[in-house]
Design a protein around this nucleic acid. Structure first.
Lengths: 194, 194
DNA sequence: AGGTTGATGTCAGTGACAGACATCAGCCGT
DNA sequence: ACGGCTGATGTCTGTCACTGACATCAACCT
């Protein structure tokens, strides 16, 4: 007989999402989440540094997806093309079965500013990681930063569309289209003298 | 004789920045900030919803600067050109005398993740506001969102450069150059078929 | 059998915030 | 001149997020 049920963080995450979705984020205490799976508040905070973090854990998987995408790009690809590869790679992570879960999760986030802050910050960190990876490929600092941030703009926008009700295309397809739109939007512009 | 010194929020902000810069953000309690200007913790939280907010108050001015920049753009300007106008308008807010203050403020933020979250979120809100303003000009949702987010990418990147030590160019000039760089970065790319 | 380990529980404490209520200088109408 | 109103502040009290220190105890190792 095992002393503790395995997968404690996962059980906490499921319980938390459920409670957040029904009672609301602020109306749910960390103690309630923990107790709902037979644990104590202290244990909750041993697994998650933060009450918010219970909704954001697992981001490292996404990060790896982005980074392997960057590394899988051909050596002579332009920064933006590399980012396009990273987007495709990361999009694969969000399969169709994942959509309902992502939807409820996002609806919780959308209803709470504190969670939105965490989300923006995670996207920012992702951009920083990608920029680092681009730099490692020899891209200059400024280009790397801009390309990475632009990639996150596309990803964030595409994700919002993917979550939208009625939407059925894959995230990869949407991201592709959003990127194309961005290129068109920017491409048409004159070099803008001061 | 006046009952209370005027400019309470400003005094609190100055005191907070000073304390954050010397002792560090986490090591400074809201009570300490308040007491350092002869007030109580409760009063502090009447002026700022948050301990962090004491560093971010006044963002509405920046927002207005961006929005008037958007509105000042010629009617036939492309979304990106409109954003370029907004950037120029907002950059005017950051005069050269402001730089030292911005530097110490940013150094505090850079040392604390919680503050970085707030900052990312504020930039995101700014993007949303600009997108709304673009929509009001008749730009479609997707283009508005992308243009606005791209604008914030440029602004954030330019701001970081402006803050950098040794840097002497105006924020407007830097933003212009960063935008040019981004256009070049994106412009060269092929339409990227799937 | 006995020591070790690692996830958990218990307890106590700090600090961020919020509601309810009291205070009281200055202003305003009479 | 007097009394009530106002609005920024203080006081008091409570909740909850989070943390350090220490105890527990099944499984595992030797």
């Amino acid at each position: 007989m095992v002393r503790w049920e395995p997968g404690t963080p996962e059980r906490l995450q499921r319980a938390a999402l459920e409670l957040f979705a029904t009672r609301g984020y602020e109306q749910t205490t960390a103690t309630e989440i923990a107790r709902s799976v037979g644990l104590t508040e202290r244990t909750f905070f041993r697994h998650f540094t933060d009450k918010r973090e219970v909704l954001f854990h697992g981001q490292h998987v996404l990060r790896e997806a982005f980074l392997t995408g960057v590394e899988s790009a051909p050596a002579d690809a332009s920064p933006i093309d590399v980012v396009a590869c990273a987007l495709r790679s990361a999009s694969a992570f969000f399969t169709d079965e994942r959509r309902p879960h992502s939807r409820t999760r996002q609806s919780v986030i959308d209803r709470n500013p504190a969670l939105q802050e965490r989300e923006s910050h995670k996207l920012g960190s992702l951009a920083a990681a990608i920029a680092g990876s681009l730099r490692a490929r020899g891209v200059d600092e400024l280009s790397a930063t801009l390309a990475a941030k632009t990639g996150m703009t596309v990803f964030g926008t595409a994700f919002t569309l993917w979550i939208g009700e009625g939407e059925e295309r894959s995230l990869a397809d949407i991201a592709d289209e959003v990127l194309r739109k961005l290129l068109e939007l920017v491409g048409r512009t004159s070099p803008a003298g001061s």
